[in-house]
Design a protein around this nucleic acid. Sequence first.
DNA 1: TTTATCTTGTGAAGCTTTTCACAAACAGGC
DNA 2: GCCTGTTTGTGAAAAGCTTCACAAGATAAA
Lengths: 219, 219
Amino acid sequence: MPPNLPSVSDSTIRRLSLYLRVLEELNEASEPTVSSRRLAELAGTSAAQVRKDLSRFGSFGKRGLGYAVDPLERHLREILGLQRRWPVVLVGAGRIGSALFEYPYFRERGFEIVAVVDRDPAKVGRRWNGVKIEPVESLSKVVRELGTELGILAIPADDAQATAEALVNAGIRGILNFAPVQLHLRPEIVVNEVNLTLELEALSFALHGSSRATSPERD
Amino acid sequence: MPPNLPSVSDSTIRRLSLYLRVLEELNEASEPTVSSRRLAELAGTSAAQVRKDLSRFGSFGKRGLGYAVDPLERHLREILGLQRRWPVVLVGAGRIGSALFEYPYFRERGFEIVAVVDRDPAKVGRRWNGVKIEPVESLSKVVRELGTELGILAIPADDAQATAEALVNAGIRGILNFAPVQLHLRPEIVVNEVNLTLELEALSFALHGSSRATSPERD
DNA sequence: TTTATCTTGTGAAGCTTTTCACAAACAGGC
DNA sequence: GCCTGTTTGTGAAAAGCTTCACAAGATAAA
Ligand SMILES: NC(=O)c1ccc[n+]([C@@H]2O[C@H](COP(=O)([O-])OP(=O)(O)OC[C@H]3O[C@@H](n4cnc5c(N)ncnc54)[C@H](O)[C@@H]3O)[C@@H](O)[C@H]2O)c1
Ligand SMILES: NC(=O)c1ccc[n+]([C@@H]2O[C@H](COP(=O)([O-])OP(=O)(O)OC[C@H]3O[C@@H](n4cnc5c(N)ncnc54)[C@H](O)[C@@H]3O)[C@@H](O)[C@H]2O)c1
């Protein structure tokens, strides 16, 4: 086993996820192979980038031919850790939480929301498609019993930090955070922030500021 | 007015949005000033990064003191183009669409969903908090009449490309896309992709692959 | 077998972003 | 007015990421 390689960049991983989706589609369309050029086109990047990304993990292609779709799809799943099932705990059974819960594609990819936790007594006890909403007090117990390592935080920003800490104490190692606050947790805990207002603001800047706001105002 | 400066990087813009939120909080807490160090801490970056980011747009701080919270907040709003109101059209009144529609913070930041469009006849005609759901056929008319430049795509992946093109033809210049497909549009159209499965997969990789999958498998 | 054509895998080059480090500026106390 | 302690703004260095360009491997056809 080789020693620690230079770690894989986040952007590479995110692209692998895009490639995987494209490969799924190609597979459904019964395309046997795909070249880096075509894969790049479909995933919105460059052929060289595709090859560089993949070459970090092995040599999956055949020169002159390209990549065999089905095996490459399997390789990517393995690299991304998607062969196993990932039980997930959802904290916050509100608007965004329920949308996520009902989204079928997560489960298809192996992410299964096996527990839902909420603070609101009016929601606790309800059943969502077989999953009972638990009170926040049971969070730790639920996480431990179900062995979940991934958590989705879909609660107001005020409570996000404290609840994230509770998740970590219960054994959660990765968090997808929808609350618009920066979580401060131990460095080995992986956190992905989804900040939709920020996405809109980036659009706002691009439309408003592209020509205008790049000029520094000095006196 | 200076000629075209080297364009501002996307990561800088995204951080500005984070700074803005932190400044809002500091403002509410009546903190008069903030140092780059503290701002960095709260936004999850480094002090040097904060100063570099801000210095692209002007000199907003005072040496020895830091930045005055309220004026800096206003500067950032101006840079990001948030002084004006941004009317937004929402395409897809489903699970994620309704969560977004009901999210109050967008409006607070100036992003106001003024039109909702859906294909489902059962949904068309309903009123959401004063906004009537329109049929897809009216998309172009609605966009033109309301003068919306921003669109949110919250429909299944199959229809996303065609509908995105319809949005662009109607005059939309920026799109926030929740459908998990890469949109191919004219380069002057700004698109931000929100891919939640990808976010979970990045977590999966980090937990599964951190120690394991970085080793290339060669024969 | 040889030739023509394709496409990968990958060092090296080029580019972008982040970090470093320090002079210059400012406030407050004496 | 001058010293002390602080913090910005910014070139320069370092690190990281993407693109380039091509040798090497593979196929197919003659
Ligand atoms: N709705 C959106 O489209 C949207 C968009 C961007 C960001 N967000 C963010 O996502 C988060 C959730 O938003 P939402 O619109 O679903 O809110 P919501 O009010 O609809 O739902 C929040 C849910 O969390 C529960 N809750 C509150 N505090 C809790 C706690 N400490 N522990 C457990 N449960 C708790 C509430 O009872 C409620 O059911 C917020 O941080 C919001 O800023 C939402
Ligand atoms: N729900 C989630 O949490 C979630 C998570 C990640 C990604 N997404 C993506 O967001 C998109 C929407 O997901 P959803 O869960 O809200 O789906 P949904 O089925 O609940 O809602 C989709 C809505 O779009 C409407 N629609 C379909 N085709 C249309 C068209 N051509 N024009 C106008 N309206 C049309 C449907 O009538 C429906 O109301 C999908 O691409 C999905 O992959 C959703």
